[in-house]
Amino acid sequence: MNRQQFMQAMEIHLRPMEAQERAELLADYDQHFELGLREGRPEEEIARELGRPEEIAREALGDRYDVNTPGSDPFYAPTYGEMRQPKSSNRAARNFFTGIGLIFLNLILGIPLGLTLWSVWLVIASLSLLVLAPVAAALDFLFLNHFDKAELFVAIGAFGVGILFAIAAKSVFKGFKAATLRYLRWNNKTMKGDVSA
């Protein structure tokens, strides 16, 4: 417990005391800190030597010291442990800064990388339209009365390549979908504070 924590605890525990009497007692204990610091001793050591604020207040107040539970008495003096703020009090600030960090991470890395990956998939998927090459050759023959053996072989070859691109597009889609969902879940867990994920 440092000087500020010790003095705050003393002030809370001494609430039932008259203001002037309390101020004089607090000034005495503050003087102990001043003298100890001049001697080069750390605040924690000085606080340890002075004792627990709750016990000091109990002695100073005598019969006025009330050990009731919180809320049942306006003069209830909480212990130092009760005074300490719970760790969750910093949660809002941590969530705010985590959210800001995630926004910048997504703007700088996540969104551009995601768009690039999905653009690759779109190119592969659009190349799978080569399976329609035989249909184009048939329409060319039916409407334009134009038939070329080389065109037929190219259409059959393009059909095979289109099938390969369709299979690749399906696999790439599954992989990119899984990666995107994993990244979104990671964002969600990070925002909730589950940094182990």
Rank of each mutant, 00 (worst) to 15 (best):
M191R: 15
I156L: 09
W186K: 00
G157P: 09
A169W: 00
N145Y: 02
L130S: 08
P53G: 11
F141M: 08
S72R: 13
D148E: 15
E55F: 04
G36E: 06
A197F: 08
K192V: 06
K192L: 07
D148Q: 10
G62W: 03
N95L: 14
F33V: 06
A178K: 10
F104S: 07
I156H: 03
A158E: 11
R15N: 08
P42L: 05
V135Y: 12
S89Y: 13
G114Y: 11
E151F: 00
R22T: 02
A155Q: 01
I12Y: 12
P78T: 05
S196K: 13
R94V: 12
Y29K: 03
F176T: 06
M191A: 15
R41S: 00
I124F: 00
P70L: 06
D30M: 12
K192E: 09
A136C: 01
R94G: 08
L139M: 12
R94K: 15
I108G: 08
R3C: 06
Q20K: 02
W186Y: 01
F6A: 06
F141D: 02
I46W: 04
S128A: 14
F147P: 04
L127P: 01
D28N: 04
G62M: 06
S196T: 10
T180D: 06
E44H: 07
N2R: 05
R15Q: 12
G162P: 11
I108W: 03
L102P: 13
M1K: 11
G62C: 02
A136N: 05
P78F: 15
D63Y: 13
S88C: 09
E24T: 01
T69L: 15
A158Q: 06
G99F: 01
P16N: 09
I156D: 07
E39A: 06
K177M: 11
L102W: 14
G162V: 14
T190I: 11
F97L: 08
V161P: 03
D73S: 08
E43C: 00
L164K: 07
P86M: 03
L184M: 14
R58E: 04
P78D: 07
E44Q: 02
I111L: 13
L37A: 04
A179R: 08
Q8A: 13
E82I: 15
P53S: 01
L142A: 10
D63P: 09
S171I: 09
P112Y: 05
A136R: 00
F159G: 05
L132P: 01
R182L: 07
Y29C: 05
T180Q: 08
A136G: 01
G71C: 15
L132W: 00
R185C: 04
I163H: 01
A47V: 00
M191V: 14
E151S: 08
A136W: 04
K170Y: 10
P112M: 06
P70M: 10
G101S: 15
S72T: 14
R94Q: 09
E39N: 08
I12H: 12
R15T: 06
F159K: 09
V123P: 03
A27K: 01
T180W: 07
V120Q: 00
E18H: 00
V135R: 12
I108P: 07
L109R: 00
A125N: 10
E151D: 11
M7D: 13
A93E: 02
Q85D: 12
V120W: 02
L132D: 05
